[in-house]
Design a protein around this nucleic acid. Structure first.
Lengths: 144, 144
DNA sequence: AACCGATTTAGAATTATTCTAAATCTTGAC
DNA sequence: GTCAAGATTTAGAATAATTCTAAATCGGTT
């Protein structure tokens, strides 16, 4: 990967950000590129490290700002599987996260369609939900 | 509420802690009492403040230690609805958490029985899962 | 060419949590 | 009962993740 080449997504980015009153900046594009390039649910710190490879002068705070802008514009989701750093995911389809407590790996998992059928408190207006599954992945399974 | 009076739960506490190789101490009992007394999903800090009313000399670190002991022994669950302090819940039945993004209130909600039916990655061994629902509660609903 | 608001930047500040080392308590062996 | 061993508590320091702040910069007008 070298210099940034405009992709078909740019249009999408501009639109989504614009709808939230935000601009598409090189930093926001870079941060978004990092997310889609390797979809391993990186933390803000990891995004920062990866983004710096292409854009060495980008700052820590900017990465947080950009991630926040992407989340607000519906281009990424924050994922909190464990206490510790929030992770980010550009997969905006409805899905849950499966987390290996041993190695920390996070996988996307499809969800049954009927989740929203839970009995909510009266008058509660559901906006989004998050499903976190915890356990041990095949690699880390306590091999007998 | 004044001095701690032995309750029927004490037996249960001793057993559960014992099974994990831990003892029932006055501090652990106090912290557990705080959790069951007001089940509003307090943070460690809130538990600390409430516990101090009965036990003024209890320390911050002890509250964290006790909460950790309770979680390890299956007497409480950590709940992470948002970034920010972890909350604690003594309801060990399977349930999800409904969180009002406006006022921060957390409600327990019953879950459909079929959640575990999701397609997990091959070899993944599920231990527990957490469902967090976000939205606005009746009180905070944008009243038209 | 100067201006305005949005954005980025570096670093300080804050928040939540964990760590550390010493003091204290408990329990079983004698 | 007394003592040593190990568990637990304590205060405060240390760490990790994130947010805040104020100044510099940028992009698109007037």
């Amino acid at each position: 990967m070298k210099a940034r080449r405009p992709s078909p997504d740019d249009q999408h980015l501009t639109e989504q950000l614009g709808a939230t009153g935000l601009r598409l900046t090189p930093q926001r594009q870079q941060v978004y590129d990092v997310l889609v390039h390797k979809r391993d649910h990186p933390t803000a710190e990891e995004v920062f490290i990866r983004a710096k490879k292409q854009m060495p002068e980008i700052s820590h705070a900017t990465v947080y700002n950009c991630l926040d802008a992407l989340v607000k514009s519906g281009l990424a989701r924050p994922v909190t599987v464990d206490r510790g750093a929030t992770r980010f995911c550009p997969n905006m389809h409805e899905h849950g996260h499966c987390h290996c407590d041993a190695c920390g790996m996070v996988f996307d998992v499809a969800l049954p369609a009927n989740l929203p059928g839970v009995a909510l408190p009266a008058g509660f207006k559901l906006k989004r939900y998050e499903v976190a599954l915890h356990g041990t992945c095949a690699e880390c399974a306590p091999q007998k």
